[in-house]
Amino acid sequence: MTPLLSVQDIRKTYGARVGCTGVNFDLYPGEVMGIVGESGSGKSTLLNCLAGHLEPDMGRVVFDTRADGPVDTVTMSEPERRKLGRTDWAFVHQHARDGLRMSVSAGGNIGERLMAVGERHYGAIRERAVDWLGRVEISETRVDDRPTDFSGGMQQRLQIARNLVTGPRLVFMDEPTGGLDVSVQARLLDLLRGLVREMGLSAIIVTHDLAVVRLLADRLMVMKDGHVVESGLTDQVLDDPQHAYTQLLVSSVLQV
């Protein structure tokens, strides 16, 4: 089986400081990979390198494209990479404001990707938008409201709908539940888990919340100071941490 995404020896430095280095992994179709680590451990840098937002100094990010099979996205041309970014890839930002157009209605936000890939029938676009609002549990009556009128949790769900409407195969998520209160988090996670299973999505989730990866991720990578210190199946890593830092991380979680 060809991996959907094959990450080979990625390294990104900011001057003399190391963002992340020596990262290798394969992601297979339908698999969800979690990346955990404390602030400054390089997990967001890594995610941005993978999603094409940052150019890594070294290494390859090979994506199995629909048309041409495995292609290195680091060296592919920018138009191709941006096209991937609005068709086969999706990026869910921590702050919904970064991923949404706040001055455009919910329907327009969801429709943007469709229009970007050439859909020119208003009725069809609107129908898809309403359908996706339903899937992320937002009432159809809110389709013409702007995201500024939405609560934080709704904005995040809208952002997810906007990203998934073109049926991507790989979703990058940067702290998708950050800044939400726990009950809203729980619903969002429930929703994400359902969508990932239903659509057979592959996902890479960056978070510092171990509960999120426990629920969503099949496999887990633990990062510290730009290095991957431990990786394996999620339950294995969380229940039997080997590296001293992972042990510290797991034991730091507050028990209620």
């Binding site: 920018e78 209605s105 329907g107 943007e112 229009m115 970007a116 020119r120 609107r126 013409d144």
Partner: peptide, 18 residues
């Protein structure tokens, strides 16, 4: 430069929806 003009239609979409 990359001929990404989907956004222009978002404006027209907003017109119709409003």
């Amino acid at each position: 430069s990359l001929e990404e003009y989907g956004l222009m239609h978002v404006k027209l979409y907003e017109d119709i929806s409003r």
